[in-house]
């Protein structure tokens, strides 16, 4: 009753919402890069928001279903196929035992999330299933999925019945994800060292386009843009940083800290992206441009609150549809 990786992807890991309570020991939270996509993928198969999913980058793994399962993909669109036939994203799909999931090309986004009804079974380390690659703990033996790895659902739960001939069956509803990934400037609040930027640098920060460089990964996105000058002359002693923190590096370029960021840092923090915009950023690829705009902490909270209500509504709708559907079969 498992899936088996028959061809490894470039970086596919088991993740949940992250490992909290240990940053005082330098153990960073990790977890999925795109929390919105994780929640939607889970909601589509009737799971609670935080159960473990597989986060996949492109090129992603090829997967053999050794059991019939109800699964979903949300986040990026890597043109998934089952035995060569197109599989839709953002929809619950019942896949028959023996079928093979593969990915064609990267159409949109940077990470796709594979959820299974019941959630994936994984190693728990310090109260989280997230894969911590640096210390090699959590998830699938603390590492990326490799060929012959098997993943099991925590429990096999009922799924929609397939008719005899079909290799997979798409359940008849789709999560409307567009509202959560509306293109626009990424919003930030001021960081503690924001005011050490020269007036010209502040102007530049909000009037320029920044591009995600190739040196970007789950730890952080290095950005390419016009140089930003700080008037800071003394070195800063290390202080905590968080997901979304925009640090100004000595080369006058910015880095945005992402899921696997270090817990502390000593570079000037010019800003922090708001939580509500991190999913949008997590789906951007090297070469993608964006601009920044400034909001207050109060506005950041209001935006997140509205997003949360929309997500909750979507989760409820998914749960309702699935319950109705399963009753009908």
């Amino acid at each position: 009753m498992s899936i088996q990786v028959i061809k490894a992807g470039i970086l596919d890991t088991v993740q949940d919402t992250g490992r909290y309570g240990y940053q005082q020991l330098g153990i960073n939270p990790g977890g999925v890069m795109d929390r919105t996509a994780m929640r939607i993928a889970n909601a589509l198969v009737g799971n609670d928001a935080g159960v473990p999913v597989v986060e996949m980058h492109f090129p992603a793994a090829e997967i053999l279903f050794e059991e019939t399962m109800l699964v979903s993909l949300s986040g990026a669109d890597f043109s998934p196929r089952i035995n060569g036939e197109e599989m839709p994203v953002h929809k619950p799909v019942c896949v028959r035992k023996g079928a093979i999931l593969s990915f064609g090309k990267q159409i949109k986004g940077a990470r796709t999330y594979l959820a299974v009804r019941g959630g994936w079974k994984a190693d728990n380390w310090l109260h989280s299933y997230s894969t911590h690659l640096t210390v090699k703990a959590g998830g699938q033996a603390g590492r990326a999925l490799s060929r012959t790895d098997r993943l099991f659902p925590q429990q096999l739960q009922p799924y929609g019945l397939l008719n005899k001939e079909s290799i997979f069956e798409v359940l008849p509803w789709q999560a409307a994800v567009g509202a959560f990934y509306q293109e626009g400037s990424l919003r930030m609040i001021q960081g503690y060292e924001f005011d050490t930027l020269t007036p010209a640098a502040k102007e530049t920060l909000f009037s320029s386009s920044f591009t995600i460089s190739r040196e970007s990964n789950r730890m952080g996105y290095r950005l390419q843009g016009p140089p930003l000058i700080t008037t800071l002359t003394t070195e800063l002693i290390s202080t905590a940083v968080t997901r979304g923190t925009l640090q100004l590096l000595p080369n006058e370029q910015l880095i945005v800290l992402m899921a696997d960021h270090q817990t502390t840092g000593g570079y000037p923090r010019v800003g922090h992206l708001i939580s509500a915009d991190l999913a949008l950023l997590a789906q951007k690829n090297a070469g993608d441009p964006f601009s920044l705009s400034l909001v207050t902490v109060q506005e950041a909270e209001n935006i997140l609150h509205r997003q949360e209500m929309d997500l909750q509504q979507l989760q409820n709708a998914c749960n309702f549809r699935l319950a109705q559907y399963l009753l009908g079969v």
Binding site: Y20, G21, Y22, Q23, Q24, P29, I237, S238, T239, A240, T242, T263, T264, S275, V297, Q298, E301, L304, H305, E308
Partner: peptide, 29 residues
């Protein structure tokens, strides 16, 4: 969620979504 002591600072990381839901109409910060 986390308390991060550093040389001369302490940072408190919190579950913003949970706190917003629990305290409607208030600024969590």
């Amino acid at each position: 969620l986390d308390l991060i002591p550093a040389y001369s600072s302490l940072t408190v990381v919190y579950d913003l979504v949970a706190l917003i839901k629990k305290n409607p109409g208030q600024t969590v910060y």
